[in-house]
Design a protein around this nucleic acid. Structure first.
Length: 628
RNA sequence: GGACUCGUUGCAUAGCUUGGAUAGUGCGAACGCUUGCGGAGCGUUAGGUCGCCGGUUCGAAUCCGGUCGGGUCCGCCA
């Protein structure tokens, strides 16, 4: 039981009062109050104004009067506000005890939205021909954070990474290696994925532009890749596996992990497409064009003014979007699973088992990574295609909203950062481009952050050994990067600026982590274990009550975040918690008060804060060191 | 041309789903706080016709329509 207890109590009592007045069907709200208006507010008075032909003010006076007659465990008094609102004041000694005791349980903050059903979250899904840049990182962090939140909301989450290991982007680096003479081994000290992206890919595509006759080579390589048994395809497989391995290192370093890797090449060879294509024909969801501009193609009819979408070309081959259809259906468990499963060759740092699909019959392990619902994290430039997939899946699966495209705006480069990379943009932000080499690699940003945080930490703790410094600066760097990627709304463009991204003050992860370190320090210095067997009525300063209240809101925030698939809700909550603690820290001393009972009560509060912020940060994939 | 999306203070952003009270936060600016549990902190001040016009409503940053400005998407590419 948390702050929600008092909300529920008020809601029940108000319903009873309305019953007595023979009023029904009023959907009023009961919410945590804005600061300065008590603890809980209801808008019920406004909603009744018309029906009762009275002003909200009169109604709130009447309801407040009636409410005083109700049995209430947690409300100390109702209050009619001149604005017409009906506000409530909590009985804090009781609520303190309720919230602070509860906060010590491991499951504090859990909500049951998923009812233990399975849900698939697909994210990352990058071509394995280059290193991950910060644009990819936004996708990855959103996906990972949403997965963590859904798990807290009692979903069984299967996290998938769709490895796009066929097609043009892969063909291009193969051309570079096989025809333009690039060495297989990267130069000393360079990661293979960086080498493939920064050197082989960028320079190979440059060459096409200079000499268009080279396009012929590209086409041939693409063709060779289609035959899985060709020497070229086997070579490409080796290369992409190696890049993938490097990309995964980047992800793991950011505390991101997966359950299963799916490979586009295998989906193509699995025959899944043929099955779903037959199904689409049977259900009349695709049509064959006998004339018009798409003559000879199979198309999906456009919605309203939208154009028809070709899914099978007149030469019989499937288009890009067509490949997504069987995968989407597979994720929803609508198709017989053609895959076997084997463990990925490297272990993930958190020991979560990572599987990968294979078409090799010698692996007999079967697994099920499908879900009742599917969330696909892809940037909103693909919204149109995803809308088509969503609509098709809606026809295959009866559960409403079974397939959700979780879109987000892209990461661009600030004009200053673009300039550093050699592009003059006239003060405007610039779209990143892998082909043009216009991007900032995730590893580079991490390295810069690491350098800065290491320096900072050393300055503050000259006594610390290198391995401890390393641990702290790693935690702070990962946190900073992750927090910056989710703290704003998904549909807001992030104009990434190298200099500004290194900021460690204000609304940043280090601010929150620092707050946690302060709490840890108090607990450490106290020299005793905190207990919940304390006098809760001693916590009556405003800053103390505000902190308890914020702690008590945890599960409501998780509910909000899960319902709206909105990571930023949790990042804001973490920030709010930190602000509440810092305000408490400034106003209420905990140690050396000469009053052991008060000290124990405050220590209990500090401890509750510490474990709650740890749980909340964990949802963001952030750990908070005890010292920093 | 059509569709989607964003527009809140110098800059960046929350609140919009579910309309009500004083539009919250960070950066930047000015000033202040440390023999005290960690200053990656705290406090004070300045800065807002919530793009514009209209509609619905007792009440609109929030809902609806229009309009302007930025971004994105609209291929038998992926």
């Amino acid at each position: 039981m948390t702050f929600k207890s008092i909300i529920d109590e008020i809601e029940n009592n108000l319903n009873k009062i309305l019953d007595d007045l023979s009023i029904s069907d009023v959907k009023f709200s009961v919410e945590p109050a804005k600061p300065g208006f008590g603890d809980v507010s209801s808008n019920v008075t406004f909603l009744l104004a018309k029906q009762l032909k009275k002003s909200p003010k009169e109604i709130s006076e009447m309801l407040s009067e009636k409410y005083s007659q109700c049995i209430s465990a947690l409300v100390s008094k109702p209050e009619s506000h001149p604005s017409g609102y009906l506000n409530f004041y909590a009985d804090w000694p009781k609520l303190n005890q309720l919230i602070l005791s509860e906060s010590n349980l491991p499951e504090f903050g859990d909500v049951d939205i998923g009812k233990n059903s399975t849900i698939v979250v697909e994210h990352t899904s990058v071509n394995p021909n280059k290193a991950l840049h910060i644009g990819h990182i936004r996708n990855i962090i959103i996906g990972d954070t949403v997965s963590r939140i859904l798990q807290k909301a009692n979903y069984k989450v299967n996290v998938l990474n769709y490895v796009d290991d066929s097609g043009l982007q892969v063909a291009d680096i193969i051309v570079g290696f096989k025809h333009f003479g690039y060495e297989i081994e990267p130069p000393e000290g360079k990661k293979f994925d960086h080498y493939c992206g920064d050197d082989v890919y960028v320079k190979t595509t440059e060459k096409y532009e200079q000499d268009s006759s080279l396009e012929e080579i590209r086409k041939n390589v693409l063709k060779e890749l289609e035959d899985g048994n060709s020497e070229t395809a086997q070579f490409a497989d080796k290369i992409t596996r190696r890049v993938l391995s490097n990309q995964l290192e980047t992800c793991w370093n950011l505390s991101v992990s997966y359950d299963c890797l799916n490979f586009e090449s295998q989906i193509i060879r699995s025959g899944l497409w043929d099955g779903i294509f037959e199904k689409l024909k049977e259900m009349n969801l695709v049509e064959f064009e006998n004339d018009g501009k798409n003559v000879g193609c199979w198309v999906i009819r456009g919605d309203g003014k939208e154009e028809d979408k070709v899914i099978v070309r007149s030469n019989g081959t499937a288009t890009y979007i067509a490949k997504d259809i069987p995968y989407a259906a597979w994720k929803l468990g609508l198709l017989d699973d053609p895959f076997h499963y084997e463990k990925y060759e490297k272990e993930q740092p958190n020991s979560r088992v990572l599987w990968q699909t294979t078409l090799n019959d010698s692996a007999f392990v079967s697994q099920n990574f499908s879900g009742d619902k599917v969330i696909t994290v892809i940037d909103s430039r693909q919204a149109r295609l995803q809308k088509i997939i969503t609509s098709l899946m809606g026809k295959f699966k009866s559960i409403p909203d079974a397939y959700v495209h979780l879109g987000y705006e892209s990461v661009t480069l600030s004009s200053d950062t673009a300039k550093v990379l050699g592009i003059e943009t006239d003060g405007k932000q610039a779209q990143m481009s892998g082909r043009k080499g216009l991007y900032v690699n995730a590893d580079s940003v991490y390295d810069l952050l690491k350098e800065k945080t290491t320096e900072e930490t050393k300055k503050r703790h000259p006594e610390m050994d290198d391995s401890e410094i390393e641990k702290i600066s790693h935690a702070v760097s990962v946190a900073t990067l992750r927090y910056e990627m989710i703290k704003q709304d998904l549909d807001k463009i992030i104009a990434f600026d190298l200099t500004k991204s290194l900021s460690l003050e204000g609304d940043t992860a280090p601010y929150i982590q620092y707050t946690h370190a302060r709490a840890s320090r108090i607990l450490e210095k106290s020299g005793r274990d905190s207990s919940i067997d304390v006098d809760f009525s001693l916590l009556r300063e405003q800053s103390e009550i505000d902190l308890v209240k914020t702690i008590g809101l945890f599960n409501l925030q998780v509910r909000d975040a899960a319902n709206n698939l909105s990571p930023k809700v949790i990042s804001r909550y973490c920030h709010d918690l930190a602000v509440a603690f810092n305000s408490f820290y400034e106003k209420s001393k905990v140690l050396d008060l000469g009053d052991e009972r008060l000290e124990n009560s405050r220590l209990c509060l500090v401890h509750s804060f510490k474990i709650t912020i740890e749980k909340a940060l964990n949802l963001l994939g952030i750990t908070a060191p005890d010292k920093m």
